[in-house]
Design a protein around this nucleic acid. Structure first.
Lengths: 110, 110
DNA sequence: AATACCACTATCTTTTAGGATACTATTAAT
DNA sequence: ATTAATAGTATCCTAAAAGATAGTGGTATT
């Protein structure tokens, strides 16, 4: 493979790490793979995330077209977050991440 | 799936993001997928990384059993970094990351 | 009427990552 | 002998990420 191609690949890796990286983004996406969720539901799932951070990360993911925010005004206003089509295309990748993560834990501990 | 299982998955995602995350770790691993490399070779590949950061990241990756450091003292001392077996097990994942990254760029730009 | 839940926002502080820059010890090339 | 390359260290500094904590305005529950 040409050297230029390799540089592009490194950039791709850095881009993806950017969108799923950081302490929470990957976990938020993984949690939404399960099903659509509301703000506090996500917060509980994630355990120790602060509302400030969750808000910020959700906005980032919306901007990157991975997550959509829907408001339901029938009755009490509820807001649900779900993966967009593009977000769903991440599911296999997240699956592989989970699988490798389990293997990795064994290697590092064992 | 049970709730406890889901928590474990979220933790796995966070763990993996940790080992391949940050600005450089993923790119370093991707670069070593190609072939084993020396310190300055990696530095050139990665473009703008500083030696301080490269040293630090390589040590981290060594500690996590993903990269091994080998010293060759015949002639001038040369040091080469390569993926361990465990590190190599990341290759398919990195491949998928690159593929998704290319797709993602199109979605976000287009 | 009081309490509690929802979905946040605001402010302040701490932590961490990583850049900038200079330097070192060894070896190789000219 | 000088220059350049290798493989880093050592210090200092800054910017960004994220935690801690409190508060807000609405709805639902009892």
């Amino acid at each position: 493979m040409k050297n230029k191609q390799k540089q592009i690949q490194l950039r791709d890796v850095q881009d993806v790490i950017d969108v799923i990286g950081g302490r929470w983004r990957g976990a938020i996406l993984a949690s939404l793979c399960d099903k659509e969720k509301r703000f506090n539901e996500l917060k509980r799932d994630l355990g120790s995330i602060t509302p400030r951070t969750l808000t910020k990360e959700l906005k980032y993911l919306e901007m990157n077209k991975l997550v959509s925010r829907e408001v339901d005004t029938s009755g009490a206003v509820t807001i649900s977050y779900s993966l967009t089509e593009h977000g769903k295309s991440l599911e296999p990748l997240i699956g592989q991440i989970v699988a490798w993560g389990q293997k990795h834990r064994k290697v590092v501990l064992g």
